[in-house]
Amino acid sequence: MMNETEFDLNLLPVVLAIAEERSVSRAAERLGWSQPKVSIALAKLRAALDDPLFIRGSHGMSPTPRALALLVPTRDILARVKNEVLIRAAFNPVTTTRRFTFALSDIGEMTFLPKLLAYLQAHAPNATVRSVTLPPDEIAVGLENGDIDLAVGYFPDLKGRNFFQQRLFTHSFISLLNAKHPIKGRRISMEEFLRIGHAVISAEGRSQEVFEQLLAKHRIERRIVLSTPHFMSIPFIIASTELLVTVPYAVGESFAKVANIRLIEPPLEIPQFDLKQHWHRKYAKDEANMWIRSVLVKLFSA
């Protein structure tokens, strides 16, 4: 007796077509096959199942009891292949209860989450969001195993053929001062920049590296008064001291709205850097992942 690994499942549509059409030629037309191909398939079926399956009679090809017994499971198998294998499950944001997980730095949260959460509340009200901050190697593992849907921001370590990326917008840096600081103008001079006390943020996010690397390249040494891993205290510190801090532009704009501080251009040209969304190639065609990527493009692409 032939076992399931030897049986050619591609032959099953032939059983159904001949049974319903009662004709090899009409079955061939229905399947889009040639008549000889259907005849060969029928011969294989007869040999595999040790039964003639169809007998030619006055009303065409008449199924044997063995063929009749095959019809219900064959219809079920073909329907399941069509509905569960060939048809991709549709993602419906209105009804989804999915939790989307993003790898974000704290400045990434400030930049992306307010708009994103507002959009999800309007268009995917039952969806939830989880934000994680992890070392680059753990982010890569999380993207691969599906624990993280997207890494959004500045992640230069996410390279290689297994990671896809899409630019959202380009970022730069801005310096911040107390609104009543004696240094005036739109740009601070290098002399003032070197003389003034600085607050420096050494957070998990990689974007701050761009500015620090530029200073190192030009051998510029600031007078660092405060070093902190936290962004959230910075606007209140700057508003109540005469320190200067340099941060990504979108962060500086946000801080200026909540504290008595103003923006001032740094004394040197700072390279811009791209903020991107990154995902693993395993999930490139995942419906939910595709949808949330399209949302980020809609909200932030420039």
Score class of each variant (00 low, 15 high):
His181Gln: 08
Pro248Gly: 04
Lys37Arg: 13
Lys180Phe: 10
Met232Ser: 14
Arg75Glu: 12
Val81Trp: 08
Ala17Lys: 01
Leu113Glu: 08
Leu70Lys: 00
Ser25Phe: 00
Asp274Trp: 01
Ser233Met: 11
Leu226Ala: 03
Asp76Leu: 11
Lys184Ile: 14
Asp51His: 04
Lys285Asp: 14
Arg219Gly: 07
Ile224Met: 10
Val81Arg: 06
Thr96Phe: 10
Ala179Gln: 13
Ile18Met: 04
Asp50Val: 02
Glu242Phe: 12
Asn178His: 14
Gln166Ile: 05
Ala199His: 12
Lys217Tyr: 15
Ala69Gln: 14
Ile201Lys: 00
Gly60Arg: 01
Gly60Asn: 07
Leu117Ile: 08
Ala17Cys: 10
Glu269Trp: 05
Arg293Phe: 02
Val94Lys: 15
Asn145Pro: 06
Arg66Thr: 15
Ser34Trp: 07
Gly146Trp: 09
Ile183Thr: 11
Asp76Ile: 10
Phe102Met: 05
Arg219Phe: 07
Ala179Phe: 13
Ser39Val: 03
Thr74Asp: 01
Met290Glu: 14
Thr128Glu: 02
Arg222Asn: 07
Asp147Ile: 03
Asn3Lys: 14
Asp8Arg: 09
Phe236Ala: 14
Glu20Pro: 04
Leu134Val: 11
Ala79Pro: 00
Ala67Asp: 04
Thr128Gln: 06
Val38Glu: 00
Val85Cys: 06
Leu275Glu: 13
Thr97Cys: 14
Thr246Phe: 09
Glu269Thr: 12
Lys257His: 12
Gly160Gln: 06
Ala216Ser: 14
Glu84Val: 03
Lys82Met: 01
Leu299Arg: 14
Leu194Lys: 12
Asp147Gln: 13
Ala41Asp: 02
Trp279His: 09
Pro125Gln: 09
Val251Ile: 15
His280Ser: 05
Gly160Lys: 10
Gln166Asp: 12
Phe7Ile: 05
Val81Pro: 00
Ser23Val: 02
Ala140Val: 00
Ser254Gln: 09
Asn92Pro: 02
Gln213Lys: 11
Phe54His: 03
Ala103Thr: 00
Thr111Cys: 12
Gln277Gly: 02
Leu45His: 00
Arg98Asn: 07
Ala250Cys: 03
Val15Trp: 03
Arg262Gln: 11
Pro73Ser: 08
Leu12Gly: 10
Val94Ala: 12
Phe54Asp: 02
Leu299Thr: 09
Trp291Met: 05
Arg75His: 05
Ala284Asp: 13
Pro135Val: 13
Ile196Leu: 10
Phe273Gln: 02
Val132Gln: 09
Thr133Val: 12
Ile40Leu: 09
Ile139Thr: 09
Ser207Lys: 03
Thr64Phe: 03
Pro52Leu: 09
Lys159Phe: 07
Phe54Glu: 01
Leu176His: 11
Phe163Gln: 04
Arg26Leu: 12
Ser131Gln: 07
Asn92Phe: 06
Arg219His: 15
Ala151Asp: 08
Leu113Ala: 03
Gly146Gln: 13
Lys180Ala: 15
Lys276Arg: 15
Ala203Trp: 09
Thr241Ile: 13
Gly142Asn: 06
Val81Glu: 06
Met110Cys: 06
Ile77Arg: 05
Thr96Ile: 07
Lys257Glu: 13
Leu176Val: 11
Asp157Gly: 13
Ser105Tyr: 02
